[in-house]
Write a protein that binds this DNA or RNA. Structure first.
Lengths: 115, 115
DNA sequence: CCTATAATTCGACAATTATTGAAATGTCGA
DNA sequence: TCGACATTTCAATAATTGTCGAATTATAGG
């Protein structure tokens, strides 16, 4: 992921309604959520929400598909993954940073049960 | 880390010069870098850089200390850590997400060398 | 074809953010 | 105290972003 895409993604998430919408979509999983449902849930006018969803889309963080009359948005985990990867690599000094937060299913830490 | 701080942090990083400056500071480590040095390295006018560094500071991503005539900026790893933690928790569906990116010393991928 | 529903696009405006030279502030050495 | 240096603050302006009602596009059912 190049710096430019990263900036677009960060900018997309750096807004109250968009961050909230993205969190909602992450929770919703692959099924996603209809634009209207998101707008209603967040208490934001449909046209405003549409604007924000377009931003998230432009940043590649969400995908959209039509389903009958509704347009369903879904979080793009790969993109989020890419963003996290970039931040890990470039903004955490290689110093594990959230090494904890990310890797806490260490069923393999037996490597050196030492002592 | 609350959503509001997260938005400030994301917004702070969502800008070409600021992302570049932050990366530079992460590399620089605890020693940090003088404002002027950052500006020169990035080819940005001092007053502009000062503005951006203030933004990073306001977002809590960098700390500053005076050292003689210079003002030294340094990345605040704890803050970055907090940001990453939030994103992991709220924007990655608990789905490992960057489990890979973060923990790539997988000498254990022999799991299915298959075929 | 007509109506209702679901979203987006348009347009006009408000608000925030970015850019810089010039002036002000703080620090040092002579 | 004076002058040079390192940065920030100011101020004016440009550019981008956010808001939301009204008009428009797309789909479904009768």
């Amino acid at each position: 992921m190049d710096a430019d895409s990263v900036i677009r993604a960060l900018g997309a998430l750096a807004q109250e309604h968009r961050l909230a919408a993205f969190r909602l979509l992450v929770q919703a999983g692959a099924d996603g959520m209809a634009a209207g449902a998101i707008a209603e849930r967040l208490g934001v006018p449909a046209s405003s929400m549409s604007f924000h969803l377009a931003q998230l889309g432009h940043a590649g963080l969400v995908s959209q598909r039509r389903e009958s009359r509704s347009i369903i948005y879904a979080a793009d985990y790969a993109a989020m993954n890419g963003l996290m990867g970039y931040l890990m690599e470039n903004c955490c000094a290689g110093v594990g940073c959230v090494a904890d937060a990310g890797c806490n299913q260490p069923d393999l830490t037996q490597e050196r049960t030492a002592a």
